[in-house]
Structure formats: C-alpha cells, structure tokens
Amino acid sequence: MALKAEPWQTAEIAGPKKALLILKPEVVVAMVKRAKRPILVVGHQAAEDYSDDVKMIDYAIRMSKTAGIPVVATAHIATQFIKRDFQPAASMSAMDIGNRLQDPEWKGLDGKGPYDLALFMGLPYYMEFVILSALKHFSTNLKTISLDRFYNPHATWSFPNLSVEDWNESFEIILSKLGGN
C-alpha cells in the first residue's frame, strides 16, 4: 500500500489544511459508526471504473445497505442503481448536493436534520476536489471522507493513492467490520 499523501492529480495541491490519511480501513468504520447522520454521495464514475466484476457502485450499495446510509446519486448514475434493484435516496447534481451540505440549515433529504458525515465516491477527481474544498471551508459540523482510491486532500479523511487491489481489500474490510459480508 502506497502511503504518501500526494494528491492524485499532480497540481491539485491543497493546504494548509489537508485530509488525514486513512491508513487503516477501520478508520472509515469508526467514522461511520460514530456518525449520527451519514450520507453517501456517488458520482457517475462509480459505474465505470475498475474491472467488469468490481465496480464502486456495488460497494456503494453494499455499504448503504450494511450501514443504513442514504445514497445520493449524481449525474445519470441513478439508472445504474435502479438496474441493480437499489433505490437511491435522491438523484441530484453534484453541485446541488454540495450546496445543500454546506448549508447548516438544510434539514436533509428526510427533513430530520443536517448530516454530520458525507462520504464521496465516483465523482471526477477534480470535481470532487473542489466540492470537498467548498465543504471544508463553508460547512459547519460536517466531516467528509473521500472513498475513491486517490488521495483527495480537501476531505477530512481520504485514502492515499491505492492500487485497485488494495482499494478492494480496504473496502471488503470496511464492509465486513460494518457488519456485512
């Protein structure tokens, strides 16, 4: 596992405040378990990346079901969820969900109150970069986790740049420790 906290895209250098590295998948498990109101934002690349038999979207579904986290599907990926018999809590643009998450008065998709943990996966790296930056600077009481296999420094927590194999392994551990299989 490569552990250098370098942004995946060479020039996307952030700071002074940078994401803490997820050195062990258990960090994600602890964050999710500690969160009272987590939400999972899934971009269109979740259905495209990696090999045919391993797609991020499948992990997203398993994670949502295992930990009871509502999913926001951005762009047109809702159709991929539906093909998998999974109903996302909402389908909206990445900018829309980012904008709502930074609003401390937003009551959430279910009207029950603001979220305290937002997990992101499957957005184009540079879009996720700036949306996480918006949340870092303007949200209150919201932690963010980038679940992509690239270090995204504006998150509160992010994986380092990982190989597909390492990323898969991490996710399997997360799911298993969250209670799934």
Binding site: P16, V130, S133, A134, H137, F138
Partner: peptide, 9 residues
C-alpha cells in the same frame, strides 16, 4: 454563490 476554492490561501 456556491464557492469552490481551489486552494486555502
């Protein structure tokens, strides 16, 4: 406006 800072500085 929804601001998306490129960097912190």
């Amino acid at each position: 406006p929804f601001y998306l800072p490129y960097c912190d500085v």
